[in-house]
Design a protein around this nucleic acid. Sequence first.
DNA 1: GCAAAAGTGTTTTAAATACACCCATGA
DNA 2: TCATGGGTGTATTTAAAACACTTTTGC
Lengths: 248, 248
Amino acid sequence: MPAQATAGRATLPDVPDQPTVFRIAIDLTILTIRDGQLAVLLIERGKPPFEGQLALPGGFVRSGEDLHDTAVRELSEETGLEGRSLHLEQVRTYATPGRDPRGPIASVAYLAIAPDLPTPVAGTDAARAHWEPLDLERLGCGWLAFDHDVILRHALERARAKLEYSPLAAAFCGETFTIGELRAVYEAVWQVRLDPRNFHRKVTGVAGFVVPTGERRYPPTGRPAGLYRRGNATLLYPAMLRPGGSRR
Amino acid sequence: MPAQATAGRATLPDVPDQPTVFRIAIDLTILTIRDGQLAVLLIERGKPPFEGQLALPGGFVRSGEDLHDTAVRELSEETGLEGRSLHLEQVRTYATPGRDPRGPIASVAYLAIAPDLPTPVAGTDAARAHWEPLDLERLGCGWLAFDHDVILRHALERARAKLEYSPLAAAFCGETFTIGELRAVYEAVWQVRLDPRNFHRKVTGVAGFVVPTGERRYPPTGRPAGLYRRGNATLLYPAMLRPGGSRR
DNA sequence: GCAAAAGTGTTTTAAATACACCCATGA
DNA sequence: TCATGGGTGTATTTAAAACACTTTTGC
């Protein structure tokens, strides 16, 4: 952020930089799995611009607030969840001139991952919020307000990529989960079918990804499944590589 | 960026969000390989705050400018290079209150990769700029002005990770390069020794990573090496995985 | 008994690793 | 001739993929 001495160039008028001032908004891409399908939390905008259109939830950074704090606050306002307990990471920043008709507003996009919530959205400001199943076809073509199509696409790409080398998938599950539930996450996010048998061996073979609790979960029908919780690994080795090597 | 209706909560005074306004700076982590060592372009600050200290080059986003445009402009101002021709990507944004004593200034960090430049820095404003060999020990402990230690560390992590699955390494090389030069990039960035023989086979086996030009380069001593240029792959398959599986 | 989901064993294929060895040049 | 880096061949180990088969539950 040093103010570079553009002043002093022979070929340019002796003016310093003319920095614009921005308001900074946080926009959240909150993902979960609902009924075996990847879903994103959207709100219907209650006022202009884009009134009545769907948008990612978000809000402005307030005085004295760090970006991450704003994201946590918005997350709790929108979902009624303790943002602290959810996976939350910054994706990237958008500030193309004209992206918001209200003026120069930069948006810092965050990705949040939530387990399938018992009460998805309740007791919050955002009664206008709902989980929208993600239809990959619809993405990136004026579906959402502002440039939120693009923001959502980038956040989704981040999530898809991180399943490979990080234990992010477990953030979609509750405290404890079965290997089958974890597999459902991979299948929903990547939109592929995975061999349950090879998947089981692979996951349990990755050091620190999941640890057995010793308990079991009884499905409506079928053999009971072992329960696991997150391990302490931050990088998966070996990685859970996407079939087809991510080329798609 | 919708202004959420925080107003209306029973427990809070009926005030809307109080967004702060920010100036937005772009800070550049420009990496290259000099004498087989990874190096970063730093400037010595010519005025307060942090006068006389080392910092990443950068500058403010101007009115009507997109973030990427600002980065390209700063890159050309600092290095005299056409920013267009270099690899340039956004890393992340920093806006912790107090990070800049001049007031609320957000910094959007960019990572740039340059081939070893014939004239590293010349004919620009930034006579105060120089290539600093990267000593991994020194990172993250008050070496640089502002929070640039952290910014540099994150950018470096991005670069190290992207060597694995993207053809980024080739951006450190000129138009054409030998496999040995490409290996030197991996060795410098990862700080490892790689087996030249296995590396050769691996690189040439990855579809679209490098394509032979048919020409040769004659080293001072030894057998001449085949010359290659970048292929059209954007993702490497199979990936060039780090020895030890990135766990370090 | 059957259906359904969990989990193991075994074989095949592909990639990472280790390292012996040959190649083409300058001095 | 040697030194130096370029490049190939081949065996070993590791992981991915395919799939037959056994286990444990509800009905």
